[in-house]
């Protein structure tokens, strides 16, 4: 345990310095844990509403995601755990779609998930660095570190985070568990991690793979030649609560 102790001392010393005003705030967090901005790779996604809204009642994306990531199926909707799910357009975009007269369009459903904000409030408030921004734009959770204070849930302006009020294993049948992906434990917060485990090895997010309508387009936002950029070209796109300047990475194509 030598390394850990040394690391702890180092961090302690750095905090000490900080308290004395000797170090700039951002230097205390080690470089790789901070988003640097202008990175060559910025993972992002577009939801093509023309395609998605047509598939009423379809939940292939959520089923694929929740199945592979061992998301517990909790009947108590108020304490449910969700990574990606469908909600009403009027509720997703209260300031635009929520105000149009056409009730049918307001109540149409499309997908919501973590927005993987560049300027993520959840990352800013986390007292242990359990939630952090990767340089490629993924807002990641380190489940080993989460103390379950739920400050991130108060901070997220999208309601994208879920807490494990229960032991999640109680809601996963033994044969339904994917042994290659960990479950979570009681008392930690979780959310979509953009399939970091797949993106890191050159794959695409599972929801994108599972969508038969081709409504979900993933790609590198900073690469003008990516599928995502081509999809965004020449079409209007909405982002959720853009006025908050969190810079969400999920675009909804009109």
């Amino acid at each position: 345990m030598k390394t850990t102790r040394r690391e702890l001392l180092k961090r302690g010393a750095k905090t000490g310095l900080l308290l004395l005003g000797g170090t700039a705030l951002y230097e205390v967090v080690s470089g790789s844990e901070l988003l640097t901005g202008g990175a060559p790779l910025r993972h992002a996604m577009a939801v093509d509403l023309r395609r998605c809204l047509q598939e009423e009642g379809c939940d292939r994306c959520a089923a694929a995601c929740h199945g592979a990531h061992n998301v517990p199926r909790i009947a108590d909707e108020l304490r449910a755990v969700k990574w990606i799910w469908k909600d009403e357009m009027g509720r997703i975009f209260p300031e635009t779609v929520g105000r149009i007269a056409n009730a049918e369009l307001r109540e149409k459903k499309t997908v919501v998930l973590c927005n993987h904000c560049t300027n993520a409030p959840c990352v800013r408030v986390c007292p242990t660095g359990a939630t952090f921004s990767r340089e490629d734009g993924i807002v990641m959770m380190d489940q080993h570190r989460c103390i379950g204070c739920r400050y991130c849930m108060a901070a997220c302006p999208y309601g994208s985070r879920s807490f494990n009020w229960y032991d999640p294993r109680r809601f996963l049948s033994e044969d339904a568990i994917n042994p290659d992906y960990p479950t979570r434990t009681r008392g930690v917060v979780e959310k979509c991690d953009f399939c970091a485990e797949r993106l890191d090895t050159g794959g695409r997010p599972l929801c994108v793979e599972a969508c038969r309508a081709g409504a979900l387009i993933h790609g590198n936002l900073n690469d003008p030649g990516s599928d995502l950029r081509r999809a965004l070209q020449g079409r209007f796109a909405l982002r959720r609560r853009a006025e908050l300047d969190t810079d969400p990475g999920i675009y909804y194509l009109l």
Partner: peptide, 17 residues
């Protein structure tokens, strides 16, 4: 445990798989 923690931090925190 030191090794496991290093691996864990590489994979989860640094995305180094």
């Amino acid at each position: 445990m030191v090794l496991l923690h290093q691996w864990r931090d590489d994979v989860v925190r640094r995305g180094d798989r």
